[in-house]
Amino acid sequence: MEDFAVKIQGLTVAYDAKPVLSDIDLEIPKGRLTAVMGPNGAGKTTLLKSLLGLIPKVKGEVEFSCVRGKPPKIGYVPQSESIDTDFPVTVLDVVLMGCYGRLGWIRRPSKEDKEFSMEMLSKMKMEQYWDRQISRLSGGQQQRMFIARALAQKADIYFMDEPFKGVDAATEKAIIEILKELRSGGKTVVAVHHDLSTAPEYFDWVTFINNRVIANGPIEQVFVGENLSRTYKAGGVT
């Protein structure tokens, strides 16, 4: 049995009376890249948000395993369309937000925080855009910025909502490099992923959900035709 990063037992989440997730039992392994896959409306984003504690649960338990004796630090990459790109912030402003968790209330980011954020930007090859307002970035550049922000969080577990959505090929490659680097550093990554063709190459663990858990395990064992058809045909969503 592998060490788990997150253990979910009997999780049920509902909007109104309609359950979006019912009776989810799941162990997400530590130090792996896990893809959460399923058709539209399967509850992938809802699962992520309820793990982050942002949506009230109807019932069930979510347990995070400790990292070095402490609750793990959680990093987060939003779904790109959930962001208001007209908001008056620059690329560096956004990456700096990754440091806010360490600062706590009221304390302001220091020069070191800014330098560290610039470093994370250059890691994503975004340093020349640091003072741009974020609406003047391409989809790929925006995603690189959010990955840089997640890196600035220095988290133990990263939750990413479709990190490859709407990005160019070069960005996709850059992101997957970073994910692998995080894994070698012992970090856990949980990403909502849509592209069936790239999943086996990018991830080493997969969770198929469609309102409930269809399958969960190492990608080479679980990513098979039977599970795919059960995931994408169950529930009447095509």
């Binding site: 948000k49 982050l52 504690g53 942002l54 959680i74 987060y76 939003p78 959930s82 962001i83 208001d84 908001f87 912030v89 402003d93 956004v94 937000m97 806010y100 968790g101 600062l103 706590g104 209330w105 009221i106 302001r108 980011p109 922000r149 969080q153």
Partner: peptide, 22 residues
């Protein structure tokens, strides 16, 4: 002046703000 950072992050990205404890 006191809450600039908190106003910024809760207005721009409330999900991250909540994750970070703001």
């Amino acid at each position: 002046l006191i809450f600039f950072k908190e106003l910024q992050i809760t207005s721009f990205d409330p999900v991250l703000a909540a994750v970070l404890g703001f």
